[in-house]
Structure formats: C-alpha cells, structure tokens
Design a protein around this nucleic acid. Structure first.
Lengths: 131, 131
DNA sequence: AATGAAAATGTAATGTTATTACATCAATTG
DNA sequence: CAATTGATGTAATAACATTACATTTTCATT
C-alpha cells in the first residue's frame, strides 16, 4: 500500500495529531496551527475530512475529537472495524480491532438487509493507570 | 422494577421523544416544547440528563441526538450494553442488545484493567427500505 | 508552454450544540 | 419550621461545525 501524498494543510494537521499525547478537538488543532498560518476552522475541518477519508485519522464521536490512527502506514481501512477505549481521566486512547465483533455486527446488519457505512465503537471509562 | 416518577419537564421531554418518529436534537425538542413553556436549552438538557440516567432515553453520539428507549418499562439499564443501527436516509433507529459483543468488550477491558463506563456502538448506513 | 478541469485554499459569516453562572422555587426531612 | 436537596428559570457564553463565495494550485492534456 502506497502512502498518500498529503497537501500542506493536511500534512500540518496530521503532524499535530501525530505528535499529540491524546485526541484533539478541531479548534485546538486550529490554535496549534495559528503560527503556521491557519486562520479559520474550515481549514482544519477540510484537512480532517481528507485524513479521515485516507484512514490516517479517526474521529471519536463521543468526544467530538480527532486522533491519529495507531498504524497509519498500513492504512487503517485495511483493518476493518476500528474500536476505541478512552480513559476519561488521562485522555489516553487505545485503538483496537476485533474480528469477532466485526463479524457479529456484519451478520446482524446483513440479516436485516442493512447496508453498513461507518461503525462507531467507543468504550469510555478509566484506564489501569488512573484507577 | 418500579417506574421512575418524572418531574414536569422530564415528562414533557420524554413525551416528545416517545411520540417522535426518530431521534431529535436537544434544540428541536426545545422547539416542540415552546408552547409548553420551555424557553431555554438548559431546560431540555437538564431533563435529558435525568432521562439518560434513568435509562429512559439514549444519546446517539454519532449524530448529537436523543431517542426514546425501545423498552422503557423494563429499564434499559437492565439489558446491558445498548447498540444502534441508524439509517442515514430515513433516520430510522433500531436499538439492539447483543451479549456476545458485550462480553467480548467486557473481556477486552478486564484484560487491560480498564474500568468500563458508557459504551457506544452505532452502525450508520442504509436500511432495507431505503436501499 | 498554454489551457482547462479538478482539487485545494482563504476568509467571513452563520448555524448548531452544549455549558456556566446565578437567582429562585419546590419537596423532603429532621 | 428550618435546613437541605433537587428542580426550575433566564441570560450569557462557550464549543463545535457548515455555508457561501472568491481565489489559487495542481496536473493531465494539448
């Protein structure tokens, strides 16, 4: 799989997410990129849209935030369904993939003639270190 | 299981959701309750908080909207993990519960000493009728 | 190199979702 | 009845996201 060539804005946003400890909101990404010339939310959202499409970034629906993919080189889309374990105390996010769950949901949808688009799985809670 | 006694505002919000075809945003609930005296978003959010706590209402994280529980009489919390299949075309939402997935996620969390709070599972896509 | 289409960008304005802060009122209990 | 707790009313503001429109860049094709 060949690495997608990113535009300047896409690269900047991806960099910020890659170097971040945890997930970031679109507006905090914007703040971090003011010095690089970013002035408006749309610049961030547009870059994020592409990065999501490329599978380089994930959106955490339960917190309106974005996180770099755990294995961007392989193209996350190849791993099928992506799930997250999110610590509400330290903000740490663990990305994981489970074929059993993926198949189970796939079967459930197929049985009902439901065409599956994006699937969200997010476990909120407290991680071992914060317990 | 005894049915929770709702306050006036909670009852009004629950009613709106119960009689709605599909999920509603907090602000559309507010609009529907103007005639009943609602003036501010907080009145809706406060009622929703309680209804969520009672398990009478669910929040759909992937669309920032709220939906009445499919079986409010039994108290949804009793059913364990709740998942949703959401049609992006007609807005229809199917609530379901799967012990296999629930156990799988529970095991995953336990193995990592992660204390699980709320878990979100939402399948977006197109339902049979809209395909 | 010129050109034309598609993609990306810049900027302002606005729309949508959610919370903070503070005052008041109602229900419950000791 | 006093004290506490939970619920409510209202205004203001914060946080998240999109629409609209003008401009520029990229890149395949001539």
């Amino acid at each position: 799989m060949t690495m997608q060539q990113l535009t300047r804005n896409q690269g900047l946003v991806f960099d910020v997410l890659t170097h971040s400890d945890g997930p970031l909101s679109a507006y905090s990404i914007l703040d971090k990129l003011r010095d690089s010339g970013f002035r408006a939310p749309l610049q961030v959202y547009r870059a994020l849209d592409k990065l999501l499409e490329f599978g380089l970034v994930h959106r955490l629906e339960s917190m309106n935030a974005f996180v770099a993919c755990a294995h961007p080189d392989e193209g996350c889309h190849a791993h099928g369904l992506t799930a997250f374990m999110i610590c509400e105390t330290c903000g740490d996010v663990v990305e994981f993939h489970d074929h059993m769950i993926e198949n189970r949901l796939k079967d459930f949808a197929r049985d009902r003639n439901f065409r599956t688009g994006k699937t969200t799985i997010e476990i909120r809670g407290t991680c071992a270190g914060c317990a």
